[in-house]
Design a protein around this nucleic acid. Structure first.
Lengths: 206, 206
DNA sequence: GTCTATACACAGATAGAC
DNA sequence: GTCTATCTGTGTATAGAC
């Protein structure tokens, strides 16, 4: 494995475990088995390394959740609820420390223009798009709207688990996901002609 | 105002704005108009000050949400949806930087025994208990369960808004809250007294 | 590209006077 | 209780050799 990836691997382990501001570049360089000068040859700055750390984390995270979804049979509601059940198990690992993207955004809230925040935002939007596709494949109306709700449930559950170390929040969130998806299935069946109407008031501001 | 409170006020402003690890005790002391030595006379350590900062933040936060709830009429579902609508407005302030408790827990995920995490957990449990009481007062079944779901929605919405700067997540979370509460309403109690009011707060001016 | 060595600022925390 | 002055470790980042 090349030097840059060794550094990234060390950064991933330490940034995720201890938080991005708690970890020094010295520590990362030491763990990667290189000197600080080599680290700064491969990355312009620590901020640059932080953004690269999140960037490298995005695809594996999405793949994991996609795999969890595929491990279940049934309706899309049941399979997404299953995803939340998998999260509950996953979170019990002693290495689990919440969502690296949300935690980075929380730490960097005082640095609005930080490149890592843009990476985190992009990752979450990709995740939301995954939900959109899953929902559309079963004809859920207003898939974009419901996908936003699922993202809220997912990140909310992760936050509560991180604060309380109470894994039941994943289950109640999964239950909520199921209720919400089924509610929109009923609505689309009850009002078949209105499924494509835009919703005023929930329009995004990007 | 006494010295301790002046320090706490400065800490609140800086910790919330920039994050607890980004702010030095020097900066806080300077803002409070005292020397570092005085700060260390009033607080044993920076960790101690962080815990005190969150402790002082808890009651005002709960009061604010309680006040938002009371500003609305209608069913408990509608009033809680109204709370989420208020959050959307509140979050648009340039000083808003998400939930101080969740952000502190995110920053301190690498320091499991930190006293501030216990404070954050206690605060969130108080908040959840507030939801329990509101739900029970209108005969929602499984109030504890639904209150957990509402906490997930609240902290999830805050997380998404912080990451994307997209305030619509408060609205979709409020909508989800309403759907979930109504799904758990005891129909024997809910149907006779149920009014068909418009939903305040979820269609605010955007 | 990777090394040794170091610049320079700032972190948390303390000593001791008054 | 609040001050001035300071200790000690560590932070990000860079210079220049090979």
């Amino acid at each position: 494995m090349n030097t840059r990836n060794r550094i990234l691997e060390a950064a991933d382990e330490l940034f995720y475990r201890d938080g991005i501001r708690s970890v020094s570049v010295d520590t990362i360089a030491k763990k990667a088995g290189v000197t600080k000068r080599t680290l700064y040859y491969n990355f312009r700055s620590k901020d640059d390394l932080i953004a690269a750390y999140l960037e490298a984390r995005s695809d594996p995270t999405l793949s994991r959740y996609r795999r969890w979804f595929q491990e279940f049979d049934g309706t899309v509601a049941e399979r997404i609820a299953g995803m939340f059940g998998k999260l509950a198990v996953w979170a019990k690992s002693p290495r689990w420390k919440g969502c690296g993207f949300a935690r980075a955004a929380a730490e960097l809230a005082g640095a609005p223009g930080h490149p890592a925040i843009a990476v985190a935002s992009r990752h979450k939007k990709c995740f939301e798009q995954l939900f959109v596709e899953l929902l559309r494949s079963e004809g859920v109306s207003k898939a974009g709207f419901v996908a936003q709700q699922l993202m809220v449930l997912l990140d909310g559950a992760i936050t509560e688990i991180l604060i309380h170390h109470d894994y039941s929040y994943a289950q109640v969130a999964g239950d909520a996901a199921m209720t919400l998806i089924e509610a929109h299935l009923k609505r689309s069946q009850a009002l078949p002609g209105r499924r494509d109407l835009p919703r005023p008031g929930v329009h995004t501001e990007h």
